[in-house]
Nucleic acid binder design. Structure first.
Lengths: 185, 185
DNA sequence: TGGGTATGAGACACAACTGTCTCACATGAG
DNA sequence: CTCATGTGAGACAGTTGTGTCTCATACCCA
């Protein structure tokens, strides 16, 4: 018998492949009937919202696991740099599971999710500000842009993976290296 | 009286704000009735497809305007570098108009558009390969990844602009600089 | 074995959107 | 003025997906 978590996981996986999947599609992906899916999640919005919340949970957890607040507060360049490396790898792992959430139109328009997302950006930006102060990141880039840029590279990585252009194992190094030093020789 | 092009332009503008707009929404945005919109475009797919085609036209035109094939063939580092600068600025201008097309689920799943898009990526990749050979871009990055990365930065720029985090005038420099040299100090 | 629980299949009403059609009206050209 | 053309308003049917409900059944546990 499929648990609520099993269903969420299946929906997640399927949405990463087909962002416009219907409830019938998601039920099929979970190997259950549509009726049973509705027993778990009354509405499609409920399901999406739950996935959105979990994706934000993961984002928040990654910030904590990489100790972004600690690194930012320390002001230590080496520590901040290690934190950035760690963060990129964690974000990539998160987007393996929640990649669809990066660009899902519903999630991007749900007010409470957007609000929480903004709050997380704020915490991430604090790290970038500290990184700039410590000389780890360029001080001439708006920290919010740095956040957007890393987000964009995650979208790029997701699409490269989906398009079969790159093996997963290369992504960590590519994203980090592109993020930090760009594409120029 | 609104021409077909006026209608397309209005739809484009509105889709950049609300990617899930209905035909009624788009008619309203164009200041015409839904019936008239259907006189211009029999189906929603027709409209989307036309916009998708035009966005690919613009992409192709930008590659030509920046003389990517010429620069690639020349093998001249200075010329290739200038071409890249030009290309980034043009892509950003294109995404002012066609930003929604970057992540629109329908456009990304329409087989003929995807096919044409792949062909354009191919031509873009040729430029990156030449840039790597000329020592302009890092040779250790897969050229396809470079293409994805720039695409990701365009998404980032669009979102930063939409979120009001950055003024339009700063985008060219930020995207180019981040693309080329990254965020690291 | 019997009873409670979860499920699948399917019917059903409903909502939103789509695409078509008609008709009345405005406007501009001749 | 008159006619042709384009338009808006609205009715209409069709489609798709949603959410609810019922009922038979399978399964697990006592």
């Amino acid at each position: 018998m499929a648990t609520r978590d099993d269903v969420l996981a299946a929906a997640q996986r399927h949405l990463n492949v087909d962002a416009r999947a219907s409830m019938a599609d998601l039920a099929g992906a979970a190997g259950i009937s549509r009726a049973t899916l509705h027993r778990h999640f009354a509405t499609r919005e409920d399901l999406l919202h739950e996935l959105g919340t979990r994706s934000l949970d993961r984002w928040a957890a990654s910030l904590v696991a990489a100790d972004a607040p600690g690194a930012a507060a320390s002001g230590d360049a080496v520590r901040i740099r290690a934190c950035l490396d760690d963060l990129v790898a964690r974000y990539l792992a998160d987007s393996d599971d929640f990649g669809f959430a990066l660009t899902d139109p519903y999630l991007l328009s749900a007010p409470d999710l957007v609000e929480r997302s903004d709050a997380l950006v704020e915490r991430e930006v604090a790290l970038y500000v500290a990184a700039q102060a410590a000389g780890v990141l360029r001080a001439d880039l708006p920290p919010r842009w740095i956040s957007h840029a890393l987000y964009g590279l995650l979208v790029a990585a997701r699409d490269a993976l989906l398009g079969g252009d790159l093996p997963r194992r290369d992504l960590d190094a590519l994203v980090l290296s592109t993020f930090l030093t760009g594409a120029q020789r």
